[in-house]
């Protein structure tokens, strides 16, 4: 898949933002007033900024309101509804903390749950796609959720939780990569099944339908070199998991905490780039661009 910067930005930022809200909703850290304001501001910048970024790639952002209508079937619609619901609930909850110094616990729990749910709906947009075998797996929600929560924990200064969640996310990430690499083969989709001609080893794409490029090729037929992919995985894992844990294990310092957050987000962005770039859409089979 084409690793569109807007979508990478969106999922990374909103993941972290909703992760933060999840913690803030359950009172971790238990803050009010200006401190709370700062935390909430960061969370909202991330979550809303991410959502805004996601509209950059829309053909008609001005019609975005229509996207809330199909929550019965569409994960994208559900995500929109969930996100808005969460942001509203957490806004009220946050206002209580900032302006009234009161913590409406029940509302916070609802908001926290909704935050997690929002991240889950985001992940399901990808996980539902049978056309991208690498994504079509419980690993996808597991990964996005664990990273979101780990990021949230980091950003809300929950060191212990953060370390634990980073370890879990790291494990899931490795599993996702390993499982993902065999997913296309396991899906059973091959050029042979795509065309109904012969067996996988006997069918070969000859002339493409057009010598020029097209939307499908640009969007779906991105290919990352194997070696290149492995290097990026190492970099991403180091920045996203190893370095932040290392920093957290050092005696606390605001600088290290901040570096841990930045490193994690940078690593997550690389991981997310790979999430898209390495994902093989089955339509690539028709173009002879997937060899399984």
């Amino acid at each position: 898949m084409h690793p569109a910067p807007s979508v990478i930005l969106f999922t990374v930022m909103s993941g972290a933002g909703f992760g933060m809200l999840a913690f803030l909703g359950i009172g971790l850290p238990d803050v009010t007033g200006w401190v709370a304001f700062t935390f909430f501001a960061i969370a909202y910048v991330l979550a809303v900024g991410g959502l805004m970024a996601s509209t950059f790639h829309l053909g008609h952002p001005e019609r975005a309101i229509k996207a809330f209508s199909q929550w019965r079937t569409s994960w994208l619609s559900r995500e929109g509804c969930c996100a808005v619901f969460t942001l509203l609930v957490m806004a009220v909850y946050g206002a209580g903390l900032v302006f009234l110094g009161t913590r409406w616990t029940a509302l916070g729990f609802v908001g926290s749950f909704a935050s997690v749910l929002t991240v889950f709906t985001t992940s399901m947009i990808y996980a539902q796609l049978r056309t991208v075998p690498r994504w079509h797996s419980p690993m996808t929600p597991a990964l996005l959720l664990s990273l979101s929560l780990a990021g949230g924990a980091l950003l809300t200064g929950q060191e212990k939780a953060a370390i634990a969640l980073l370890v879990v996310a790291g494990a899931i990430q490795i599993m996702a990569w390993l499982k993902g690499d065999g997913a296309l083969t396991a899906s059973g989709s091959t050029l042979a099944s795509a065309t109904g001609l012969g067996t996988a080893s006997t069918v070969r794409a000859f002339e493409p339908p057009h010598t020029g490029t097209n939307y499908l090729l640009n969007e779906f037929v991105h290919v990352v070199g194997r070696k290149h992919g492995l290097q990026l995985r190492v970099i991403s894992f180091f920045l996203m998991i190893v370095l932040p844990i290392g920093m957290l294990l050092l005696p606390f310092s605001h600088l290290f905490a901040a570096l841990a957050v930045l490193s994690h987000l940078a690593g997550t962005a690389v991981s997310r780039w790979l999430f898209f770039a390495e994902a093989e859409h089955v339509v690539g089979l028709y173009y002879g661009k997937r060899t399984t």
Binding site: G198, R204, A205, E207, P209, N214
Partner: peptide
Amino acid sequence: RVHSYEVQP
């Protein structure tokens, strides 16, 4: 769009 494929029997 019209693709084309070679098949080796």
